[in-house]
Design a protein around this nucleic acid. Structure first.
Lengths: 258, 258
DNA sequence: TTTCTCGTTTGACACAGGTCAAAATTCTTC
DNA sequence: GAAGAATTTTGACCTGTGTCAAACGAGAAA
């Protein structure tokens, strides 16, 4: 399970080095992390971290997609987050992990042992600072997603989801020449998983994808492979334009004087 | 707007001292915060912080309830969070504030000027650590709420909301003697605001409250005042029992070997 | 090739929750 | 107190999404 990698070169050749938690760390901090890091490959569908599991796991996602899920005990479930390459997995300072982490695709991880990582966190304020920054970004994304779940219609949700994927999944092995504004990607999730992201059913997701296809907003190469001819049109379908200033209709409050 | 308070005694007599961000800070850190803090009272309905506003505001909520909202530009809106006494308002390290903050009830704040607070944050790792902890708790709550928005039915949502309020709003000015397990509180939000928390309409919230009343799970003293005869029953109605172990129906993934 | 399985789409129908409108209650102001 | 405004409840009806079931691929195995 643990691949042996040449320690000296690992971080210098790391593909996510400058986008992950490791960016903006001091040389000492990087070195300390490097010393305890272990590479690990997890096949699609395998559990990485159990909900309520005693201790957390800490890891950078090097490649692939990880899904984080929460479940009600009658089986209703929701994917509270997706982790892509350069994202960080693991909840510091929590005795129990509040969610369930599973590889959505084959995943490469750079794993840090729990005890060692927590020690480093205590020793290096720079590392904690970086993790704090990352957590704030997570919180932003989570609050944005709440708005989607609370107020967007099915078609807007599906469009928003595709937009999010288009922004984060790199256009790998793409045979055709890409035009400007054209995006091509392979969905890392099944329809069932997409519906668990969006608070919908499989059927509704499928219908809305068909609808977007019919309207020409997206093209399906096959079930998993999607081509976006014009990102702007998808963005429009996603209603991805939070108001800068609250509209008069929605707001009634008095502006602050101070 | 800025009340003058005796600096020396402010923190020692502070009601939220041991629950807020200020708890677990060193004497030096508390003193530094105290030095820049200003007390401020905001009447219900007044805006505290605008969405996308240039710089953030930092403050402890001393009393009252603050609502944080996000709005789509056709007026659809959602309350992404409520802040109660001892909670912290303000997003560090963000140039633009991602939400809109407004006093839901009359609110007492302990405000820290932006520049001063950020300087303290840089100087005192202990303060940043505390804020990080707080942010993690916020993220937990946010992810829990996502599950509610994605998968709970209207009645469960309303029950969950009342449960959350029952846990956080102290039973003030309660005339009748409280029995064991009996909770009594004044709703800090209107039906419209509750519906904006739950991703529902006013009418649906009203109907579900009526339904809970009919079933005897709650009692209405008046529109705003609610009595919970038995918290356990409300908890049941809220379906507030996330699975510890994913149910076989919902999960299909292979457990990790490692 | 055929057959099987799994994931996806499509169709028919039901119902939870949304929408619109009016009545009831509470709060505010005079 | 009365009058008016605002909030909440209730009712009637409608629609978007869920549910159930069947058909349709696309791979995998034989």
């Amino acid at each position: 399970m643990f691949l042996s990698i040449d320690q000296a070169s690992r971080c210098t050749t790391c593909a996510i080095r400058h986008r992950s938690i490791c960016d903006a760390l001091s040389a000492t901090e990087i070195l300390s992390l490097n010393r305890i890091a272990r590479s690990r490959v997890v096949p699609a569908g395998q559990m990485i971290l159990g909900e309520g599991q005693a201790r957390s796991v800490f890891a950078n996602i090097v490649s692939g997609v990880v899904k984080l899920t929460k479940t009600l005990d009658d089986g209703r479930q929701h994917i509270i987050g997706l982790l892509f390459a350069s994202d960080f997995l693991g909840r510091a300072y929590r005795a129990e992990n509040p969610y369930f982490a599973e590889a959505a695709t084959d995943v490469e991880l750079c794993v840090f042992p729990t005890a060692g990582f927590e020690r480093l966190l205590a020793e290096h304020p720079g590392l904690e600072h970086r993790l704090f920054q990352y957590t704030l970004t997570e919180l932003d994304a989570c609050q944005e997603w709440m708005l989607l779940l609370a107020r967007k219609k099915a078609e807007e949700r599906v469009a928003s989801f595709l937009l999010m994927i288009a922004k984060r999944v790199p256009n790998m092995e793409c045979s055709r020449v890409e035009r400007r504004d054209e995006v091509h990607f392979v969905l890392p999730l099944s329809r069932a998983e997409i519906s668990d992201c969006l608070g919908l059913t499989i059927e509704t997701v499928s219908r809305q994808i068909t609808r977007l296809k019919t309207r020409g907003v997206i093209e399906l190469v096959n079930y998993r492979e999607i081509l976006i001819p014009d990102l702007a049109r998808l963005q429009e379908a996603a209603y991805d334009a939070p108001a800068k200033v609250p509209s008069p209709k929605a707001r009634r409050s008095v502006p602050a004087e101070d």
